[in-house]
Design a protein around this nucleic acid. Structure first.
Lengths: 253, 253
DNA sequence: TCGTCGAGGATTGTATACAAGGTATACAAT
DNA sequence: ATTGTATACCTTGTATACAATCCTCGACGA
């Protein structure tokens, strides 16, 4: 790995002195693992937003991010444009970008569309999934059952479950439409799955959906998926209301 | 228009000598009309694809497009990335980009999703449209009635009708989801509206949908919109079949 | 005291130079 | 003849320099 640095002239301006080690670890177009710096930047920024390290509403500039990621403006710029087209950032003509912020109204709009698309995916999956795809779904749910109290493990599995269904639905446009909506979920804040009771309820709903899929009951899968989404919305709304109440009673908490 | 050139030092390397006039017409970040070169490039490439001047499946390189558009690789690159994320281009790691190609199967997938989303938009519009929005819809259909034989005027009006409905639906996520699908329509080839009989039928369907919206009959609008989409798919499929038949009988035509 | 105008700073938009990666082709060896 | 290898070229990826734009803040005049 050390052979990769090549130090193409150590550095001409010695940018930050702090992140130099990590700069050396990347440096060229496709750094070792085949990912371009722009992709790295994209994932990194996305993750920072998802983890709340960059709050919604924050103001970002290209130079700032470039300094933070230890790369030049070019790949950062590319990443920002991509995130903008995903809807995570709002680009302001000559003034940088804002991390998009969603309110409760936006959330309800989002879930209205999810209630449309996810049931359709579940129904299509019930009609078209292969045996091995169903086996994969079952396996994911098996692993899910074991980590219901561990959000860090649970959340990727949850995502995988939905992705597998979407894949089995065999419709690239459905995939695109759902992706356009899903990409903004990180802006909603903490997942429902952080609470174990919610996680447990969601898991049971997943099992029911899978059962319908295995039975090739597309109408049933559709109905169950719709109620799964609707339930998820209710949980989030309840949590918001709870937080508002708490902060009313206890403003600084 | 000539005031825009400003000639910020005529040019330093005199790039191509052939497209210089057009280069002078643009040149700065936001060329007069406030659009960046990247946006211009994006629209231009999109239009070239839509008009078939760049065939589906064609191979594009950054330099080639930069030369053609009279700008540097940077904004072209940005445009290509944007078009890639829209799904119009397929970026190949180090080998340029391909104009995406859709077959009949893809088209059916696309219309399956449109049959899901557009009726939802029509229903939401019926519930939420303001008086002035309905008036705007009516006016568009009025103009539409007058140009049924003129596709060049008809197609933008058709698009405007659908956009107005989507706007009145008041759901940014529905908008995003539909946009993700709509952006690939240019890849399907000629519009149905080129044929006057189809245009006339579509216009009547539009009128029926508007009537349901005015009556605040969301279920009716939903149903009518669904059959509108479904009819559109059937027309396209019939045309494909017709073309195949023709080319079987008359291979070189 | 308030409004308007101008200078300056900050940030993006664009062009270009350079380096790294991939592919294809030509050549040699089996 | 076929296959493996090396080299050259083409394209993209990245960095940086510079131009244009927008916002801010302060000075000046009414």
């Amino acid at each position: 790995m050390a052979t990769r640095a090549r130090t193409r002239k150590p550095s001409r301006t010695a940018p930050d002195e702090g992140a130099l080690e990590r700069i050396a670890a990347r440096r060229m177009p496709a750094a070792g693992d085949g990912r371009s710096l722009a992709e790295v930047a994209c994932d990194e920024i996305r993750r920072a937003i998802r983890e709340g390290r960059v709050p919604t509403g924050a103001h970002l500039t290209e130079m700032e991010l470039a300094g933070w990621l230890g790369m030049s403006r070019t790949p950062v710029r590319e990443a920002m444009r991509r995130l903008e087209s995903e809807g995570l950032l709002l680009n302001q003509p000559f003034r940088g970008a804002l991390v998009m912020r969603l309110d409760a109204e936006d959330m309800q709009q989002m879930f209205a569309v999810r209630e449309l698309l996810e049931p359709a995916a579940a129904a299509a999956c019930a009609l078209r999934a292969t045996g091995s795809e169903i086996a994969a779904l079952r396996e994911v749910l098996g692993r899910e059952a074991e980590v219901l109290g561990n959000p860090a493990a649970l959340i990727p599995l949850n995502r995988q479950f939905h992705d597998l269904i979407l894949e089995a639905a065999r419709n690239q446009f459905l995939k695109k439409a759902i992706a356009a909506v899903y990409s903004l979920i990180p802006l909603l804040g903490d997942s429902n799955l952080l609470d174990e009771p919610h996680a447990r309820a969601a898991h049971l709903q997943h099992l029911a959906i899978l059962e319908a899929i295995e039975a090739r009951d597309d109408a049933g899968a559709e109905l169950l998926a719709r109620s799964h989404v609707s339930h998820s919305l209710e949980c989030r709304l309840a949590r918001i209301k709870g937080n508002e109440l708490k902060s009313t009673l206890n403003p600084q908490s």
